[in-house]
Amino acid sequence: MRLGVLEIGSNTVRLAVADEHRGVPLPVHSSKRRLRLAEKITDDGRLPPDAVEQLVEAVDGLRRESARWGVADPLAVATAAVRGAANQQHVVTQIHARTGLCVNVVPGDVEAGLTFLAARNWVGAQAGSMVLLDIGGGSLEIASGRGRTPGFTVSLPLGVARLTREYLDHDTVPAPEALRRVRRRVRHELRDVADRMQWERPRTALAASRTFHQLGRLCGAAPSRQGVFVPRELNRHDLKAALRLLAERSAPARAELPGISHARARQCLTGAIIAHTAMRCLDIGTVVLSPWECVKALCSHNCRDAVRSGLSGGCQCRPARRNPGGFPSRSAELPAARHLTRESPPHEAPGRPLTRWWFTKPGGTPRPSSPA
């Protein structure tokens, strides 16, 4: 089965087309448009009209490209930049009106759960208890668990684009005090998560994001041209040395280093601070770099059904108790914008694995979905 996912992220809009074979997404085609939405958010938290226009044009172009590759209706998801925008509803309505695509606005903890699922599918059960770090443009997602789905997920406002805009929004060599302010911000946000990880004690740590992969390349990991099956790791001590190297250089000079692109030269220093501080706070010495992330999980037929059916008809999607049968499948007409919520039903503890869904009509009573 050929599937397509269109992800609206904080830095880029990406299209991934894959053939699903026994649950494995085999890549067919990928494309992206770099928009840097997180850097264009105004002081009042809105995406300006010119940014919305660029986004609509990018989505429409990728939709037509997806159709040429055999997927006329790709699954469209939006993460931190659109999720946090004050005019979120206007943005997704404009996309739907002009492209016909229904945008799924995915909360950060659900995004963390999907990325965890993709990473778990990549490394398998041999990894044991696992923690996952995912640095995006607008947020840092952390998930941990012992099974296929996470038992704990959290999304923190620690994205590279967000903190770069707030603390390091220039191309010159940064002042030491500016770097200290970023570290203090990251440590402050991670305090409660660090306490939880002391109890979890995961056996394996994974990282899945472009930021981590660029830092891994800078620290000696194999280049991407060698393929996804080459093992790649990032050591905290190596990252500390790379952090010093990045801090001593201006943004144009950083782009001359291995693995650092011109487009991410300004953000890579912020990403290194977030990654190193997070690894230190969570007592992680080495992370395995996973080539699979949230988009790969959404290339699974079951995950697509969960997102689409759980968000249909104006329903809210809520995690409920474990269901060995997997995600449910329901067909219904899709609205212009749909939202997932992390709230648990009254009789359930929060943070349970997202393997079954609760559907709540506005003003209605929660009812469990039927198994797939």
Rank of each mutant, 00 (worst) to 15 (best):
G145N: 06
N235G: 15
R254S: 10
A336R: 12
W122S: 04
N302K: 10
S209F: 07
L246I: 14
A251T: 11
Q54S: 10
V28G: 01
G326N: 04
F229D: 13
A255G: 10
S344M: 06
P324N: 06
Q88C: 12
T286G: 05
G4P: 02
D283T: 07
D73M: 07
L190N: 06
L26Y: 07
V160W: 02
H237Y: 11
R236P: 05
R36L: 14
D19Y: 02
D73E: 15
A97T: 13
L37F: 03
G310A: 11
R342E: 12
P324L: 05
D305A: 14
T360Q: 14
G70A: 03
L246Q: 14
A80W: 02
P49K: 05
G325Q: 15
S10P: 00
G151H: 07
W122N: 06
T355A: 11
V59G: 02
R46T: 15
S261H: 07
H188S: 12
R68C: 10
L245V: 12
A76P: 09
V24E: 09
L117A: 10
A76W: 08
M279E: 01
L334D: 08
T277Q: 13
Q54H: 07
P328L: 03
L35N: 03
E65I: 08
V91S: 05
R183H: 11
P335C: 05
A16E: 13
V28E: 09
R14M: 03
A263R: 09
H170R: 09
S209Y: 09
H347D: 12
P48V: 08
G220Q: 13
T79A: 07
A247I: 11
L3P: 00
A161H: 06
